[in-house]
């Protein structure tokens, strides 16, 4: 698993639960280092061990932890760069949904060896969608649920999201777009202010 993903999980645990939890995770997961380097690659089993250790230490279900990770990736100020990169996906939330299939390609444009989940979006009705998510990380669909919920907030859209389990090796997420312009949403300037 790419270091960027592992580092994102590490930062999420640190920023949300504090440095001492991360120290505990390092010990519990028997890592032989205390920090993931974002630009190196790691055995995928390590990622799973880290998530397993965190759920054990926090006594939280894996699904909710992963969903919180997804929300963190979009809404925490420490990962503003990622939120911005995601916002390049489209003008509105519906546009963004349609751009999801391009997400792994966009990731590779920036970091050629970055393996993001394969995403497949189909329209199941007016303003209803079904997202299929395939990843080496079990439960990646829950990360997507958290991320989509936070992105909907970011765009000011109102959505209903439902993780409907697994089918043919893909996690299924049902999406209902209830209102495109429900709230103001967060500002997004195409170009960063100089010095920002």
């Amino acid at each position: 698993m790419h270091g960027l993903i592992n580092r994102a999980i590490q930062n999420f645990l640190r920023d949300t639960y504090g440095g001492s939890l991360w120290v505990g995770v390092v010990r519990h997961a028997a890592l032989d280092f205390d920090t993931f380097e974002p630009m190196l690659s790691y055995d995928p089993a390590l990622t799973d061990r880290v998530i397993g250790a965190a759920t054990a230490l926090l006594s939280r279900p894996r699904e909710t932890l992963l969903e919180d990770l997804g929300t963190y990736l979009v809404s925490h100020p420490n990962v503003e760069a990622l939120r911005r990169l995601l916002r390049f996906g489209g003008i509105g939330f519906a546009d963004f949904l349609h751009s999801l299939e391009e997400l792994p390609g966009r990731g590779r444009l920036a970091v050629p060896d970055l393996d993001l989940p394969a995403l497949d979006l189909s329209e199941t009705g007016p303003d209803s969608f079904c997202l299929r998510c395939r990843s080496v990380l079990p439960g990646a669909g829950h990360v997507m649920v958290g991320l989509l919920r936070a992105m909907a907030d970011d765009y000011g859209a109102l959505v209903l999201l439902d993780h409907e389990g697994e089918e043919d090796g893909a996690e299924i997420i049902a999406i209902r777009l209830l209102a495109r312009d429900f709230a103001e949403g967060r500002r997004f300037d195409l170009a960063l202010a100089r010095g920002a």
């Binding site: 974002p38 630009m39 760069a81 390049f88 966009r106 444009l109 195409l190």
Partner: peptide
């Protein structure tokens, strides 16, 4: 927009490096 995306993605990756 892809060009702008790339410029930002490149800067973010450079910063990590």
């Amino acid at each position: 927009v892809e060009m702008l995306y790339l410029v930002e993605a490149k800067s973010a990756v450079m910063e990590e490096l």
